[in-house]
Amino acid sequence: MSGCASTLSFALQQPVPGVADIICIASGKGGVGKSTLTVNLAAALSCQGKVVGVLDADLYGPSVALLLGTDDGVETTPEGKAMPKQRHGIHSLSIGNLLAPEAGLVWKGPLIAQAMEQMVYDVAWPSLDILLIDMPPGTGDIPITLLERLPVTGAVVVSTPQRLAAVDAERAIALFHEYDVPVFGVVENMDGYVCPCCGKINRLFAGGIVEPLARKRHVAYFGSVPLDPAASAATDAGIPFLLRDPQSPSAKAIAEVADKMMASLRRERANPKIAEDA
């Protein structure tokens, strides 16, 4: 591995008490449906009996509070740790729970590191099988801070099938690899949508871009999740659509992604070296 990684000090890394595995969900480009995928993956894992947490690390555009329908305000334990929200069987914490949209906050670099650490370590997480981190778009301060500080088990990268998004997704994969974090797989999102009137599948983008990207970067392709216009209604109501309509094509595709992610996690757990080289 080149340049960047060798200069890092992994001695800084600190496990999060009670959390078995941390998986980052990242995209590079914004608006590709990463947060929606994150909460629905959490829902899928929770349906399988896993205890799941979601940390919204997208300080610039926190959506998890809205997506899970959790309310404002965070309670603290007597020790001063923040209590995660619990809804739909998912434990979560988002800056959206803490700040009104009018706050118009500009996060300067050093502030971010501090805020991020608080949101990870100063939280009374229950005993979690998996903590999913909804990463912000890009490869700036937040991902760097998280990757330097947290023992991340693996990552899943999301992209829409357009070149614009794939270029950024490739950068995200490169960033994880620089930090020696295995990318479990790449998910294609919003390839097309089903017309509710005539049932025809309409493509939204060029297509045929995400799977080749996975091949190029030697990571697994986790499949394609179609856009479900009805899901955006469920989303605005704060319910993961996987729970509202588990038989929809989108929900099934996400359940499949969850299975593949868990299989990768098991492989990584069984033999970190082999899984990484695979």
Binding site: L66, P101, G104
Partner: peptide, 17 residues
């Protein structure tokens, strides 16, 4: 959509400041 609007307002506030 709703999700986008919340973030947009945050950005508008920043430029207003």
């Amino acid at each position: 959509g709703n999700i986008a609007l919340i973030d947009v307002k945050r950005g508008m506030e920043m430029f207003a400041d």
